[in-house]
Amino acid sequence: MSGTGSSRSMRENYNTHGVENYYNLVSSTYRNPHFIPVKHCLFDWMNAWWTNECHNLDTEEGSDRKTVKIFDLACGLYLLKLPFHSGEVTESIASWLDTARRNSIPQSAKVQDALPVKRRIPWQQSPPPIPFEDLSLLSCAADPYTAAAYKSRLNFSCAELSFQDVADGALPLKFLEISLVNNPTADSLDDSTSTKNEDLGIMIQSDEILDMVVCSFALHLIETPSQLFSLLWELSQKARWLVVIAPHKKPEIKDGWGWVQWNIGQWELCGSRGPGLGSEILQDRVHLRAFKSVNFC
């Protein structure tokens, strides 16, 4: 990467700079090597969730427009327990929304076709058509290490909250209309728009219910079951859905911790025999699991 003296050989980079120092050098430009499968997993999840839950969503006062609040928890990338550049989840969901809106435009009016997601199983497909007036996605983010990197990438603030802060009841209260995220696939965005995102943040009440919490490549790093329980129980009282993305099926979320695993393929609670076919979305060894809060079932 220019300016860092780094090589295409990761072994050479490690030998020259040391592992931790190398990632500190490239933290402003580093991208999760799993970003594409993470993005595909989120496309598939958002497709299934919107198709099955859109009729249950709150609408804005005086209109039929659905408003959805999403919390990108621990939005920084963690590899070898080191924090790096952040915002992959928010950017992926922004891309999903942009593609859905493109799909709602008549073919004759499109500048170019939206790119479909690679298909493997029935719910993996390009987003359904969602006209602009049908859906408003609001997003907030938190990470104790990568707030500056998140703002650099997406031109919006990230709360410097740790897992423990969230377990103690803290949440970001400033949300961004996710269509304003600096997404290179969105025709409606340019530099002059994205630099103003900070001024366009929407404040919500502290007691408002979140529609979804997404935690990517981070939840399994919580060291003790008691810490994990405290976080999950607190979130279960504030959010309807929890989406966990990881390179494996960890952490184990136990009964009594505020969440029940959801079968995405069947769109129902996982049976008494445990997770089965359709209980996760898998893309190139990236696993996405979904859980529903027991307080909102």
Rank of each mutant, 00 (worst) to 15 (best):
D199K: 12
M212Q: 07
K250I: 01
S157F: 11
I204Q: 02
T195N: 13
Y150W: 04
K196W: 03
N155W: 10
A186W: 04
S152T: 08
G258T: 01
L154W: 07
A239N: 03
L161C: 04
L154P: 00
P225I: 13
T195H: 12
A239L: 04
I202A: 11
Q261C: 06
H248G: 15
S192Y: 11
S192P: 00
I222E: 06
C158A: 14
Q164F: 05
C158S: 14
T195S: 14
W257M: 04
N182P: 00
I202R: 12
I264K: 01
W241L: 02
A186Y: 08
V244A: 08
E223L: 12
L173I: 06
D187M: 12
L231G: 01
M212R: 01
W241T: 01
Q205Y: 10
N263K: 02
P172A: 15
A167N: 09
G201C: 12
E160A: 15
P184N: 13
S157D: 15
L219V: 04
A246N: 07
P225C: 15
L200S: 11
A147K: 07
T193G: 05
Y150R: 03
I245S: 01
F175Q: 06
H248F: 12
S236Q: 02
S179V: 06
S188Q: 10
D168S: 10
P225F: 15
S206D: 15
Q205M: 11
V243G: 02
P172Q: 09
